[in-house]
Simulated assay, not measured.
Amino acid sequence: MDESTRIELEAAAFRRLRQHLMEERTDVQNIDLMELAGFCRNCLSRWYAEAAEERGIELSKEEAREDFYGMPYERWKAEYQR
């Protein structure tokens, strides 16, 4: 498999994980993810921001969260966090 295809597949898997966590399993709380898996949605948004920074792209914590959550983080918390 060439590098471009590998990156494309990894990106597709990431998008599927994001969709699963943001649309299909909104009932699962970040604290539950942290306790069971050692990472949560906020970790994923931070890793997203770190990847942007490595490529010279400025992305604030809030911007990264909004990109990942698909809405402002405060709205996500109000709608889904118990």
Rank of each mutant, 00 (worst) to 15 (best):
M1N: 11
M1R: 14
D2Q: 12
D2V: 02
E3H: 14
T5W: 08
R6V: 07
R6M: 04
R6K: 15
I7T: 11
I7F: 14
E8K: 10
E8Q: 14
L9W: 15
L9F: 15
L9R: 15
L9K: 15
E10D: 07
E10R: 10
E10T: 09
E10L: 13
A12T: 09
A13V: 05
A13F: 14
F14V: 12
F14Y: 15
R15Y: 13
R16C: 13
R16N: 13
R16H: 10
L17G: 10
L17W: 09
R18T: 03
R18I: 01
R18P: 11
R18Y: 02
Q19R: 13
H20W: 08
H20P: 00
L21K: 09
M22Y: 07
M22R: 11
M22W: 07
E23S: 12
E23H: 14
R25Y: 06
D27C: 03
D27N: 12
Q29I: 01
N30Q: 07
N30M: 02
D32R: 08
D32I: 02
D32K: 02
M34G: 06
M34D: 13
E35D: 10
E35V: 01
L36S: 09
L36T: 07
A37S: 10
A37Y: 15
A37H: 11
G38K: 05
G38Q: 12
C40Y: 03
C40N: 14
R41P: 00
N42V: 01
C43P: 00
C43D: 09
L44Y: 00
L44K: 01
S45L: 06
W47N: 06
Y48E: 01
Y48G: 00
Y48Q: 08
Y48I: 04
A49L: 08
E50I: 03
E50L: 10
E50F: 02
E50Q: 02
A51N: 07
A51I: 05
A51S: 12
A52D: 03
A52F: 04
A52Y: 02
E54W: 00
E54I: 03
R55I: 04
R55T: 03
I57H: 00
E58V: 10
L59M: 08
K61E: 06
E62P: 03
E63D: 02
R65A: 12
D67Q: 08
F68I: 09
F68S: 03
G70H: 07
G70I: 03
M71C: 12
P72T: 01
Y73I: 04
Y73S: 02
Y73K: 04
E74T: 05
E74N: 11
E74R: 09
K77T: 05
A78G: 07
E79D: 11
E79A: 10
Y80H: 15
Q81T: 07
R82T: 03
R82P: 14
